[in-house]
Design a protein around this nucleic acid. Structure first.
Lengths: 229, 229, 229, 229
DNA sequence: TATGAATGAGGCTTCATTCAT
DNA sequence: TATGAATGAAGCCTCATTCAT
């Protein structure tokens, strides 16, 4: 029942000599969230003990309650404060990109992966998949503040390509999911041991290749705005 | 929180005649697994109480321990006895299929969806994603007995298409994942409320369309077994 | 901080031989309330540990939660189920009494004392005094279902005496409290060690004597219903 | 739950000039006790958090431990330093009183009420009732230093009346309790919400009236020291 | 075979108390 | 002297599991 005891107690040794009250209090909440994200992703919400989070953050369980009202609150903070900041960054990067529709789509996917997939934030999709139904408000937040914004970027890229005749005219809402799915799965696999040996970078390049050609305009496609003659 | 008491009789009618893991008549264990699957998928393993499973199965908690040594055992049984039977069926169906590579690939995906995606078995991917790291042996079983076999089918279809020059020559292991990802995500979404309004059938058709063209051979592709001249 | 460890673990030795599942389950709630009343009265609500109640009732803490949702619930049950039954009895006894106003008043007080003061129910006033402000709903219940009914009996007795010219005309609401106060204090003292050597029976007789004469009609009192001439 | 920040300046104006246990100027300990009394009375000892006391006193929790070794110490100080000073005052006032036995008894009761009952000190009886059994030494102190002295005053008054033939010859120890009970109950009610609408001043006057006549000598009473002829 | 009362270990949370600043 | 971050010992409560019936 007890999953292998992943003891995450590797603290910064320098701090050990400094007494416990010297700790930079401003960093506490961040350290706690950091530890919590790791553990929630690795074990799930219920199976993660508050004391584990505390130990991983280098504090006692009691300390956590100075910053978060309860365990659920930690989860909320993890989700709320993790993705949104980098989302803004991503949006800006992408806004500045110049190139064709397919190039833009590839850029969006690669940027997304660099900023989330390649970091520990990649654990959040797994976490949301596991816990969304247990925390509906959190799910709503994630849907509206994270997913919706991320999908907008993808939708724009696709639409851009459609407008330029590079992509065939597809239903945007569905096409967006077709793009999202393989990237999210990559994040899930990265945090899961479901596909141990998979080379995710290779996989992602193949995803990009497949999507771009799969969505590509084909002779006989009705062009947007073109007359049908 | 209580999931609707899924009577589990709305299945693919083809399957009704075939054995299922839920047998009637002295069907206690099956009913328990049935209930357990529902609850594990809806709430996760830790958050599901044995007594809830019992109640949903129409028995009391004590009864469950006549059939399963402990809670983890229930989870194992759910995974072990759920997918494997239908896998065999699927393998047979697909073996009998006659058509081109793209047609075969589409058929594999659609069959997979009908037998699993459209069923409550669609919950298992979500469950495995959430719990794989907590139950490594179970993850191994799932990987070897379910995923590997499923991916074989897909690999065969792709290879078949490559051999016939209908698909471009791709790295099979990666290409398989490119196919798997969007279908698994569909099952996740179906059990998650992460994408509330999504029309999964429409989505899946678009996935098939995109994959087939995305994997499609393109002028200049090196054909398998062809001389390069 | 820890008050002297009053270990209330004197169980019925006969039952010890019988296995723990044999215990008459129907008696459980009663035994728990019994133990809880003792401890709540002796130590107060907060200072009483659920485990103490359990031990005093001969069960484990977990068992208590089969019968009561939480600690507060135990307190509520203690109050609700303790006094009301004997109140009814008392009301009937008193309704049958035949005698003068002073005799009736004395009878009411003595009956009250015999049924509550001399039993462990005498602890409840102390408990309510200590906890009323922490549990307003409970206080309201006690006020409306217990105090109000008890005071009605006293009010009737006083009114009866006034009508017969045996008591002077007093404001009933206030007079009732004048009667109630010394009896309630007797119960408090009985459960408190504040007045160690006090002979409560002697005290009560003196209270009755003092009240009867203190409330007694005096020459020159305006009689109810008499002309003033 | 937060009691109104009783500025504690609405006291019997006579007392204002006299020393009180709340001194200004470096009055930290006094302010802490002030706050503690409020909270202990309102919620009880266990349910009062040290930090609440601190906040109500305008300091932080740590500060409290400069003045008191622990929470129990605060309680002790509250009891020890609260009543004793005003007791002396009361004793002096009463020593100077000139009048009959009944008048003296009425004066004692009214003075007591003015100095304690009408003050926030009125909360102490409730506090002692609730906590006496948890803090036996404190109870002993209260019994010996407060109750005993207070009851002496009352005993003197009664004895004085008996000696003058105004009161019937009663057992002093019991008679004292008969007088004490209704006044203490008034203080309890004042701090309790058990008798919401009660007019305590009216009540007390009726108590005095009833006691004086209830204790009053009656024709045929054996007079103290009188020959029986 | 099924029940459900009971257990007891363990998790979440509170809070009196400490102590470097 | 005052602060407030941090601790750690409990206390409340849950729930997987047992077992007499």
């Amino acid at each position: 029942m007890k999953p292998e005891n992943t003891d995450c107690t590797e603290r910064c040794p320098v701090l050990e000599t400094v007494t416990r009250w010297t700790r930079r209090k401003d960093a506490r909440p961040g350290e706690i969230l950091d530890a919590a994200l790791d553990l929630f992703v690795a074990r799930g919400f219920s199976a993660t003990k508050v004391e584990d989070i505390a130990r991983a953050a280098g504090v006692t369980a009691g300390t956590i309650y100075r910053y978060y009202a309860n365990k659920e609150d930690i989860l909320k903070a993890v989700i709320r404060e993790s993705l949104v900041p980098t989302l803004q960054e991503g949006e800006q990067l992408i806004a500045q990109f110049d190139g064709s529709g397919p190039e833009l789509l590839a850029f969006v996917i690669r940027t997304w992966w660099q900023m989330h997939g390649a970091t520990k934030l990649s654990g959040i999709p797994k976490l949301m998949i596991a816990e969304a139904s247990n925390f509906p408000e959190l799910a709503r937040f994630h849907r509206e503040e994270v997913i919706a914004r991320g999908e907008n970027l993808i939708a724009s890229a696709i639409q851009f390509g459609i407008d330029r005749g590079e992509f065939r005219p597809v239903a945007l809402d569905v096409a967006v999911k077709v793009v999202v799915a393989p990237v999210v799965m990559a994040m899930v696999w990265k945090n899961t041991d479901i596909c141990p040996g998979l080379d995710l970078d290779h996989y992602l390049e193949e995803v990009i290749e497949t999507l771009i050609h799969g969505l590509g305009a084909r002779p006989g496609d009705k062009q947007n705005g073109e007359s049908e003659a």
